[in-house]
Nucleic acid binder design. Structure first.
Lengths: 353, 353
DNA sequence: CTGAAAGCGCTTACAG
DNA sequence: CTGAAAGCGCTTACAG
């Protein structure tokens, strides 16, 4: 017969142990699902735990043990849909695993970025950190992380390097498929808006585009290619330029949605019907892609899935940190599937041109 | 002359005390900026701290003391620009104060929502929680929070209630100003797309609209008012309906940007020029508002500032929890200034109609 | 102004 | 399968 000894405040492991008539070590074993506890004992303890609403305190577990049950997410651009998706996936996986996600927004060009990271890791002692672009490439961040000996996973880094696990999608393949989609609709003159040279995705997406064009024996017209900066305005400008020529493409594929929306704006201001006069495709499936008319054909990045996997890897490495079964995730590079989202901004080339 | 006693691993308060030749209590005082330490002693300790790169461990501080230096942010809609802004402001203020932000994305209609909150508060023991709509109104969340005795602040709740601090903007005033702006441009027939009845902002914004109309002796035509659900599609539908009537308004004001973008799409599909044939105004200044052509006239909510203030209130209440000077924030309701963002989607009523 | 002692609530390492 | 002891790194309450 158990009885409540203290009703107020939150119960500690000692309270539970006393009520259950076992040692705190046994309660600890049960809470951590460790083997080596009699089924009856385990069930009995579990019952008491439920009854007393006992929840281990993170700070105590963290101080005594080797894990903090905290995962850090470092990001830069706050408005990006990309980060939203990543955070969503990370937070859900964390909850499932009894972990918590601590977010930190930093400026990519902050002079004290290294210290900020250092501050975060040494105070919090997270079991792992997740980096999103462009932080994946920031030497100060990477160095601070290495020095703190905090495990970390990169999401969509520029390139995979040995010893740093990463999760990504296949940008080249996605761009290739999108281009093939346009070609299959009947387009032969296809324009392309590139991203800025200093971002990894830019080159990869252009590569996919030109690869598909070449595969179908179509020329990549220089006049139809423009280099933007991933922002709306550059898409608008690029499209204005491309569409002002004597010969126009019947479709333009932009390296991201924001620029694709710029193309759409350009087309509308020029009185071109989309997709009849001009098909437009983007990349990202940002929220805005479904908030325009016609809705944008685009590529959906597996942001949430990438984040889930990143969390997974970090938790696993924390768990097995000093186990016999060393799971080495340090050279794991995962590639997740994307999704072609065909909407109304692409169609067969019109008859009007 | 100090010398490094242990170079490896991270130094603890004991290490610092030994090197500095003081007690750990003195180091603790210095780290917490407590008064009652000789300036010389303080400076000396500070020097050793810097030299050894000492950083107090959060878990130890949390376990021993009354504060966790953790603030929780509970949100529902992950894609919302609103949440992004709030998080941005919260994370920055937290860093300044040496706090960290733990985020948790929950489903508004999850059956175990109360338990989720309970789990979070009892494991993490955050010094405070921030809630965003529609969680501000969720009885399970509020009850779980109250039971856990975690202080919390509501951002833009439906209504202010005694004992629960809140931060908001003045929706009525903002809608009034936007309407006045349209009227000042010369519009007399102005349509309005309402938000869903179950969201507080809906009624407030409509109130501001009708108040301004009345102030200028203009009628609110029932045929020009439509009730949407804050989503793109409902704006599109509402506009289609309103614009299909014999008499059309020369301007439509939507209760949020997503619906305003729906109006824009409708206008474009009907061949109406914006703003010449139809002026369109939104509410939120979402990212998409600047990603369309013409860019949307809208209202910018002070999301980041609201979050900063919320964090501020929580930190203050945590600090003074058992001080003599009790700052009671429990009945504080702050109202922050918004901003009218006039862009190209509004203009003088055209001559064509 | 400064410090010695106790304790926060867990896990670790060890013993049986 | 179970437990007693020690200790994680700080703050609190107290003493001087």
């Amino acid at each position: 017969m158990e009885m409540n000894i203290k009703a107020s405040a939150s119960p500690t492991i000692t309270d539970v142990a006393r009520v259950a008539g076992v040692s705190i070590k046994t309660v600890s074993r049960v809470m951590n699902k460790e083997p080596g506890v009699h089924t009856e004992t385990r069930e009995h303890v579990l019952r008491v735990v439920t009854q007393m609403k006992y929840r281990p305190k993170l700070s105590a577990r963290s101080l005594a043990g080797a894990r903090s049950f905290l995962i850090g997410l470092l990001y830069y651009d706050p408005s990006a849909a990309f980060v939203s998706g990543v955070q969503q996936g990370a937070t859900l996986r964390c909850r499932e695993a009894g972990y918590h996600l601590v977010v930190e927004s930093v400026k990519d060009d902050a002079p004290d970025l290294g210290q900020q990271v250092d501050q975060m890791t040494s105070a919090l002692r997270p079991d792992g950190m997740i980096l999103t672009p462009p932080l994946c490439e920031n030497p100060h961040v990477l160095q601070a992380l290495r020095e703190s000996e905090t495990p970390f996973v990169l999401i969509s880094p520029e390139r995979d390097s040995d010893g740093i696990p990463s999760v990504r999608m296949d940008d080249v393949l996605a761009a290739e498929q999108m281009t093939a989609h346009l070609i299959s609709l009947g387009h032969k003159k296809i324009g392309f808006i590139k991203g800025p040279a200093d971002q990894a995705a830019s080159a990869l997406r252009y590569k996919g585009f030109s690869r598909a064009m070449k595969a179908h024996a179509l020329p990549v017209e220089k006049d139809f290619v423009y280099t933007g900066d991933f922002k709306f305005h550059s898409g608008l400008e690029g499209a204005n330029k491309i569409l002002s020529r004597r010969t126009r493409p019947t479709a333009i594929f932009a390296s991201n949605d924001d620029m694709a929306l710029g193309i759409l704006a350009s087309a509308q201001s020029l009185g071109l019907a989309v997709p009849d006069d001009l098909s437009i495709a983007g990349f990202d499936d940002s929220p805005a892609a479904s908030l325009v008319w016609p809705q944008l054909t685009t590529i959906r990045q597996p942001t949430a899935a990438m984040a889930r996997l990143a969390v997974e890897m970090l938790i696993t490495s924390a768990k097995t940190a000093d186990d016999e079964v060393q799971v080495d995730v340090s050279s794991t590079h995962m590639v997740l599937a994307h999704e072609l989202v065909i909407r109304l901004s692409t169609g067969k080339p019109g008859k009007r041109l």
